[in-house]
Protein backbone atom coordinates (compact mmCIF):
# COMPACT_ATOMS: atom_id res chain seq x y z
CA UNK A 1 0.00 0.00 0.00
CA UNK A 2 2.61 2.39 1.18
CA UNK A 3 4.86 1.36 -1.63
CA UNK A 4 2.15 1.92 -4.20
CA UNK A 5 1.49 5.49 -3.08
CA UNK A 6 5.23 6.08 -2.97
CA UNK A 7 5.54 4.84 -6.57
CA UNK A 8 2.65 7.00 -7.71
CA UNK A 9 4.20 10.02 -6.05
CA UNK A 10 7.55 9.15 -7.60
CA UNK A 11 6.00 8.88 -11.03
CA UNK A 12 4.23 12.22 -10.66
CA UNK A 13 7.45 13.83 -9.52
CA UNK A 14 9.28 12.30 -12.46
CA UNK A 15 6.78 13.71 -14.95
CA UNK A 16 6.89 17.13 -13.28
CA UNK A 17 10.67 17.17 -13.68
CA UNK A 18 10.38 16.01 -17.29
CA UNK A 19 7.88 18.78 -17.98
CA UNK A 20 10.13 21.39 -16.34
CA UNK A 21 13.11 20.24 -18.41
CA UNK A 22 10.97 20.37 -21.55
CA UNK A 23 10.33 24.05 -20.84
CA UNK A 24 14.07 24.60 -20.35
CA UNK A 25 14.97 22.80 -23.60
CA UNK A 26 12.24 24.08 -25.89
CA UNK A 27 11.26 27.34 -24.18
CA UNK A 28 13.91 29.48 -25.92
CA UNK A 29 12.95 28.05 -29.33
CA UNK A 30 9.27 28.61 -28.59
CA UNK A 31 9.86 32.21 -27.51
CA UNK A 32 11.82 32.83 -30.72
CA UNK A 33 9.10 31.21 -32.83
CA UNK A 34 6.38 33.30 -31.17
CA UNK A 35 8.43 36.47 -31.61
CA UNK A 36 8.83 35.69 -35.30
CA UNK A 37 5.05 35.53 -35.70
CA UNK A 38 4.28 38.86 -34.06
CA UNK A 39 3.12 41.79 -36.16
CA UNK A 40 5.05 45.03 -36.55
CA UNK A 41 2.69 46.92 -34.23
CA UNK A 42 2.93 44.40 -31.45
CA UNK A 43 5.27 45.03 -28.51
CA UNK A 44 7.89 42.28 -28.38
CA UNK A 45 9.75 43.41 -25.28
CA UNK A 46 9.01 45.41 -22.20
CA UNK A 47 6.17 44.74 -19.81
CA UNK A 48 3.56 44.95 -22.58
CA UNK A 49 4.87 41.99 -24.53
CA UNK A 50 2.61 38.97 -24.43
CA UNK A 51 3.51 35.35 -24.95
CA UNK A 52 1.19 34.70 -27.85
CA UNK A 53 1.05 36.93 -30.90
CA UNK A 54 -2.21 38.91 -31.09
CA UNK A 55 -2.21 39.01 -34.86
CA UNK A 56 -0.07 36.11 -36.06
CA UNK A 57 1.67 36.97 -39.32
CA UNK A 58 4.24 35.54 -41.66
CA UNK A 59 5.31 39.01 -42.77
CA UNK A 60 8.60 38.72 -40.89
CA UNK A 61 9.55 35.69 -42.94
CA UNK A 62 8.96 37.69 -46.10
CA UNK A 63 11.03 40.50 -44.55
CA UNK A 64 13.99 38.16 -44.07
CA UNK A 65 13.92 37.39 -47.78
CA UNK A 66 13.73 41.12 -48.53
CA UNK A 67 16.67 42.12 -46.35
CA UNK A 68 19.07 39.42 -47.40
CA UNK A 69 19.28 36.78 -50.11
CA UNK A 70 18.19 34.06 -47.74
CA UNK A 71 17.38 31.58 -50.52
CA UNK A 72 20.87 32.02 -51.83
CA UNK A 73 22.33 31.34 -48.39
CA UNK A 74 20.14 28.30 -47.97
CA UNK A 75 21.26 27.05 -51.38
CA UNK A 76 24.91 27.64 -50.46
CA UNK A 77 24.48 25.78 -47.17
CA UNK A 78 22.65 22.95 -48.93
CA UNK A 79 25.39 22.65 -51.57
CA UNK A 80 28.13 22.43 -48.94
CA UNK A 81 26.15 20.09 -46.67
CA UNK A 82 25.08 17.72 -49.48
CA UNK A 83 28.55 17.66 -50.98
CA UNK A 84 29.92 16.88 -47.53
CA UNK A 85 27.46 14.00 -47.16
CA UNK A 86 28.54 12.64 -50.52
CA UNK A 87 32.29 12.89 -49.95
CA UNK A 88 32.14 11.61 -46.38
CA UNK A 89 29.98 8.64 -47.36
CA UNK A 90 31.86 7.71 -50.53
CA UNK A 91 35.48 8.42 -49.57
CA UNK A 92 34.87 7.44 -45.95
CA UNK A 93 33.39 4.12 -47.07
CA UNK A 94 36.22 3.45 -49.53
CA UNK A 95 38.87 4.11 -46.88
CA UNK A 96 36.92 2.24 -44.22
CA UNK A 97 36.54 -0.74 -46.57
CA UNK A 98 40.26 -0.87 -47.30
CA UNK A 99 41.08 -0.68 -43.59
CA UNK A 100 38.52 -3.29 -42.60
CA UNK A 101 38.63 -5.81 -45.43
CA UNK A 102 42.06 -5.71 -47.06
CA UNK A 103 45.40 -6.80 -45.72
CA UNK A 104 48.30 -4.78 -46.96
CA UNK A 105 51.59 -3.38 -45.83
CA UNK A 106 51.12 0.02 -44.17
CA UNK A 107 47.58 -0.63 -42.99
CA UNK A 108 48.57 -0.19 -39.35
CA UNK A 109 50.18 3.16 -40.09
CA UNK A 110 47.16 4.42 -42.01
CA UNK A 111 44.80 3.31 -39.26
CA UNK A 112 46.96 5.02 -36.64
CA UNK A 113 46.97 8.20 -38.73
CA UNK A 114 43.18 8.15 -39.03
CA UNK A 115 42.81 7.72 -35.29
CA UNK A 116 45.42 10.37 -34.56
CA UNK A 117 43.52 12.79 -36.80
CA UNK A 118 40.78 12.79 -34.20
CA UNK A 119 43.01 14.44 -31.62
CA UNK A 120 44.00 17.40 -33.79
CA UNK A 121 41.40 20.10 -33.19
CA UNK A 122 40.58 22.11 -36.29
CA UNK A 123 41.08 25.29 -34.29
CA UNK A 124 44.77 24.44 -33.84
CA UNK A 125 45.46 24.27 -37.58
CA UNK A 126 42.91 26.77 -38.88
CA UNK A 127 45.50 29.43 -39.71
CA UNK A 128 47.59 26.98 -41.76
CA UNK A 129 44.51 25.46 -43.38
CA UNK A 130 43.54 28.94 -44.44
CA UNK A 131 46.99 29.41 -46.02
CA UNK A 132 46.63 26.09 -47.86
CA UNK A 133 43.16 26.90 -49.12
CA UNK A 134 44.40 30.33 -50.20
CA UNK A 135 47.26 28.72 -52.13
CA UNK A 136 44.87 26.37 -53.91
CA UNK A 137 42.78 29.42 -54.78
CA UNK A 138 39.63 28.37 -52.93
CA UNK A 139 39.18 31.35 -50.60
CA UNK A 140 35.67 32.78 -50.89
CA UNK A 141 34.58 29.63 -52.66
CA UNK A 142 32.12 26.97 -51.51
CA UNK A 143 34.64 24.26 -52.39
CA UNK A 144 36.98 25.88 -49.89
CA UNK A 145 34.24 25.66 -47.25
CA UNK A 146 33.75 21.98 -48.03
CA UNK A 147 37.37 20.87 -48.18
CA UNK A 148 38.45 20.64 -44.49
CA UNK A 149 35.39 18.54 -43.62
CA UNK A 150 35.27 16.52 -46.84
CA UNK A 151 36.34 13.22 -45.21
CA UNK A 152 36.56 13.24 -41.44
CA UNK A 153 38.50 10.64 -39.49
CA UNK A 154 35.28 9.87 -37.71
CA UNK A 155 33.47 8.97 -40.95
CA UNK A 156 36.27 6.57 -41.84
CA UNK A 157 36.19 4.94 -38.41
CA UNK A 158 32.40 4.56 -38.40
CA UNK A 159 32.52 2.96 -41.86
CA UNK A 160 35.40 0.70 -40.87
CA UNK A 161 33.42 -0.53 -37.86
CA UNK A 162 30.46 -1.17 -40.13
CA UNK A 163 32.51 -3.23 -42.60
CA UNK A 164 34.25 -5.16 -39.82
CA UNK A 165 30.86 -6.42 -38.67
CA UNK A 166 30.08 -8.01 -42.05
CA UNK A 167 30.51 -11.76 -42.27
CA UNK A 168 33.41 -12.81 -44.50
CA UNK A 169 31.25 -15.22 -46.49
CA UNK A 170 29.35 -12.45 -48.29
CA UNK A 171 32.45 -11.40 -50.14
CA UNK A 172 33.89 -14.85 -50.57
CA UNK A 173 30.83 -15.79 -52.58
CA UNK A 174 31.53 -12.83 -54.81
CA UNK A 175 35.18 -13.77 -55.19
CA UNK A 176 34.07 -17.10 -56.65
CA UNK A 177 31.90 -15.10 -59.00
CA UNK A 178 35.06 -13.49 -60.21
CA UNK A 179 33.85 -10.00 -59.36
CA UNK A 180 36.61 -7.39 -59.11
CA UNK A 181 37.42 -5.54 -55.92
CA UNK A 182 35.47 -2.43 -56.90
CA UNK A 183 32.42 -4.43 -57.93
CA UNK A 184 32.53 -6.34 -54.64
CA UNK A 185 32.74 -3.07 -52.73
CA UNK A 186 29.95 -1.35 -54.61
CA UNK A 187 27.52 -4.21 -55.15
CA UNK A 188 27.97 -6.30 -52.02
CA UNK A 189 29.77 -4.53 -49.20
CA UNK A 190 28.30 -1.03 -49.56
CA UNK A 191 24.62 -2.07 -49.56
CA UNK A 192 25.24 -4.12 -46.42
CA UNK A 193 26.38 -1.15 -44.34
CA UNK A 194 23.44 1.15 -44.99
CA UNK A 195 23.09 1.84 -41.27
CA UNK A 196 26.64 3.15 -40.94
CA UNK A 197 26.23 5.18 -44.13
CA UNK A 198 23.11 6.78 -42.70
CA UNK A 199 24.93 7.73 -39.50
CA UNK A 200 27.80 9.25 -41.46
CA UNK A 201 25.36 11.08 -43.73
CA UNK A 202 23.34 12.56 -40.90
CA UNK A 203 26.35 13.78 -38.95
CA UNK A 204 28.19 15.14 -42.00
CA UNK A 205 25.10 17.09 -42.97
CA UNK A 206 24.56 18.44 -39.49
CA UNK A 207 28.18 19.41 -39.04
CA UNK A 208 28.41 21.22 -42.37
CA UNK A 209 25.05 22.94 -41.94
CA UNK A 210 25.86 24.18 -38.43
CA UNK A 211 29.53 25.08 -38.92
CA UNK A 212 30.40 28.68 -38.19
CA UNK A 213 34.11 29.28 -37.54
CA UNK A 214 35.52 27.97 -40.83
CA UNK A 215 32.97 29.60 -43.18
CA UNK A 216 33.53 32.82 -41.22
CA UNK A 217 37.25 32.58 -42.00
CA UNK A 218 37.12 31.45 -45.61
CA UNK A 219 34.13 33.32 -47.05
CA UNK A 220 34.59 36.98 -47.91
CA UNK A 221 31.79 38.23 -50.15
CA UNK A 222 28.18 38.22 -48.90
CA UNK A 223 27.01 36.42 -52.05
CA UNK A 224 28.89 33.30 -51.00
CA UNK A 225 27.76 33.23 -47.39
CA UNK A 226 26.31 30.08 -45.95
CA UNK A 227 23.19 30.39 -43.83
CA UNK A 228 24.96 30.54 -40.46
CA UNK A 229 27.22 33.38 -41.58
CA UNK A 230 24.30 35.10 -43.29
CA UNK A 231 22.26 34.99 -40.09
CA UNK A 232 25.04 36.54 -38.04
CA UNK A 233 25.36 39.17 -40.78
CA UNK A 234 21.61 39.76 -40.70
CA UNK A 235 21.50 40.42 -36.99
CA UNK A 236 24.65 42.50 -36.92
CA UNK A 237 24.28 44.64 -39.99
CA UNK A 238 20.87 44.80 -41.46
CA UNK A 239 18.25 45.04 -38.87
CA UNK A 240 17.48 45.66 -35.27
CA UNK A 241 14.02 44.25 -35.78
CA UNK A 242 14.10 41.16 -33.61
CA UNK A 243 10.99 39.80 -35.33
CA UNK A 244 12.95 39.49 -38.55
CA UNK A 245 16.03 38.03 -36.86
CA UNK A 246 13.73 35.56 -35.10
CA UNK A 247 12.18 34.59 -38.43
CA UNK A 248 15.68 34.10 -39.87
CA UNK A 249 16.74 31.78 -37.07
CA UNK A 250 13.53 29.79 -37.44
CA UNK A 251 14.20 29.35 -41.16
CA UNK A 252 17.60 27.92 -40.27
CA UNK A 253 16.54 25.65 -37.45
CA UNK A 254 13.01 24.38 -38.14
CA UNK A 255 13.96 22.10 -41.07
CA UNK A 256 16.73 20.58 -38.95
CA UNK A 257 14.42 19.95 -36.01
CA UNK A 258 11.92 18.26 -38.32
CA UNK A 259 14.63 16.07 -39.89
CA UNK A 260 15.91 15.24 -36.43
CA UNK A 261 12.52 14.20 -35.11
CA UNK A 262 12.13 11.97 -38.17
CA UNK A 263 15.55 10.34 -37.82
CA UNK A 264 16.11 10.39 -34.05
CA UNK A 265 17.34 6.84 -33.92
CA UNK A 266 20.23 7.59 -36.27
CA UNK A 267 21.26 10.63 -34.25
CA UNK A 268 21.41 8.68 -31.02
CA UNK A 269 23.31 5.85 -32.67
CA UNK A 270 25.76 8.35 -34.11
CA UNK A 271 26.55 9.79 -30.70
CA UNK A 272 27.21 6.29 -29.42
CA UNK A 273 29.58 5.50 -32.26
CA UNK A 274 31.15 8.90 -32.55
CA UNK A 275 31.49 10.09 -28.98
CA UNK A 276 34.94 11.43 -29.78
CA UNK A 277 33.61 14.57 -31.38
CA UNK A 278 34.42 17.18 -28.74
Amino acid sequence: MNRRTATAAGLTGRYLLLAAMTVVSLGPFAWQLLTSLKGAQEPIYGADATWLPHHPTLANYAAVADTLPVWRYITNSLIVACASVLTNCLFGAMAGYALARMRFRGRGVVFAAVTAALIVPFEVIMVSVFLTVRDIGLVDNLLGVLLPGAVSGLSILVMRTGFLALPKETEEAAVMDGAGEWARFRRIALPSVRGSLAVVAVFSFLFAWDDFLWPLIVLKSPDNYTLTIGLQYLSGTFTNDQRVVAAGTMIAVLPLIIIFLGLQRLFFRGVGEGGVKG
Partner: peptide, 10 residues
Protein backbone atom coordinates in the same frame (compact mmCIF):
# COMPACT_ATOMS: atom_id res chain seq x y z
CA UNK B 1 20.82 19.80 -33.41
CA UNK B 2 20.53 23.58 -33.68
CA UNK B 3 23.59 25.50 -34.82
CA UNK B 4 25.46 27.66 -32.34
CA UNK B 5 24.57 30.71 -34.44
CA UNK B 6 20.86 30.04 -34.02
CA UNK B 7 21.23 29.28 -30.33
CA UNK B 8 23.46 32.31 -29.79
CA UNK B 9 21.00 34.63 -31.51
CA UNK B 10 18.10 33.20 -29.53
Amino acid sequence: VASMVVVGLI
